[in-house]
Amino acid sequence: MAARSDREREFAEFVALRYADLVRTAVLLTGDRGHAEDLVQRALLAVFRSWDRLDRVANAEAYTRTTMVRLASRWWRRRWRAEVPTQWLPDRPIGDHAPDVDTAEVVRQALASLPWAQRAVLVMRYFEERSEAEIAEVLGCSPGTVKSRASRGLAALRAVVHIEGVSGRERG
């Protein structure tokens, strides 16, 4: 009983500490807050089932984030696209001088229009700042494939917004 209560307390602390950050990542993976919270909660339930095998918070976060990507990938494969309506998304002006709000909306739309694998690579590479090798392991592909998907995803973003910095170099 004590072990159970310890586990639940540790899990509760982990959720309280990391939930908001996980939801922000999930928003990028799924495209909206509702699906993002659904994704995070399902991943957390899976993490709780494995809690005893994890080295607590550090491993729990990595495991949760990997589970989120895997789950989102399955949803995509099963044709449930978190990409739903556009009717409330007005057509947005794009350009160097657009306000941040509009730029963010354009980027969000561009991200949502990317093939799933490219979107996942961009989120893991640039938002979570994972290495190509880690991403390749999560997605079950080669580092070269990760690199090409990141390159294509960035090209798609560059087509709709100006991205500062002249270097297209990828960190290894």
């Binding site: 922000r24 990028l28 909206d32 807050r33 963010a104 980027v107 991200l111 917004v161």
Partner: peptide
């Protein structure tokens, strides 16, 4: 850019 999108989307 992604941080801005994530923060706006999450509220």
């Amino acid at each position: 850019l992604l941080v801005t999108v994530a923060e706006r989307g999450a509220g």
